[in-house]
Amino acid sequence: MQQQQALVSVSHSVASRLAILAVAFINGFVIMSIELLGGRVLAPYFGSSVHVWGSIIAVFMLSLSLGYLWGGKLSLRNPGHRTFISFFIFAALLCLPIIYLADPVMRTIFLSIEDPRYGSLWSAVLLYFAPICVMGMVSPYSVRLLVLTQEHSGGVAGMLYFVSTLGSALGTLATSFYFVMWFEINQVMWGCIVALLLCAALIAFSSRHAIKEQTS
């Protein structure tokens, strides 16, 4: 029985379980912060009409939905902290084009697509699909890392939804109420990248700690 549980669960220690909840929170926070900034990134080329927000929200939802699907699939094979850590590193790297390539990407699209609805949609796809998709993979993967027993799985999933959506709510508020007042868009984006890298570090640190605990 003990053996079987060890196969199913990957995170035993309190520290590593708390770390997973913390990164789920930060991940939710960062996603909504980037979404809110997205409207401001696209506005100089496509305006701030209702279509532009429609494009951004649709692309974020699509990216998250596929991220959930693929993250869940990935959790079926050799689930472990190493893959989990790599999500955050990839997500952070994939955010860099939003800072460095947004202007040339949007200029190219602006010149080739007349209709600002489709211009904003394609820009949102090119800039946001990859990073947000990877951030979406975090959610099902964290469920896999936290679930110890079948009967507790619903509770674990509920707790994860709770912290990540709470993070999203706070990310939305903090960005729209304060960050845009204090910082430039790209400064907030750098903040998001640093936060994602901190997530990777936190998981790396807590899992190493847990392994030591287990072996000793």
Binding site: P44, Y45, F46, S49
Partner: peptide, 13 residues
């Protein structure tokens, strides 16, 4: 019927 920013950017081009 257009966002002013979009029209003005295109008019400039």
């Amino acid at each position: 019927v257009v966002d002013a920013r979009v029209y003005i950017k295109r008019a400039g081009l």
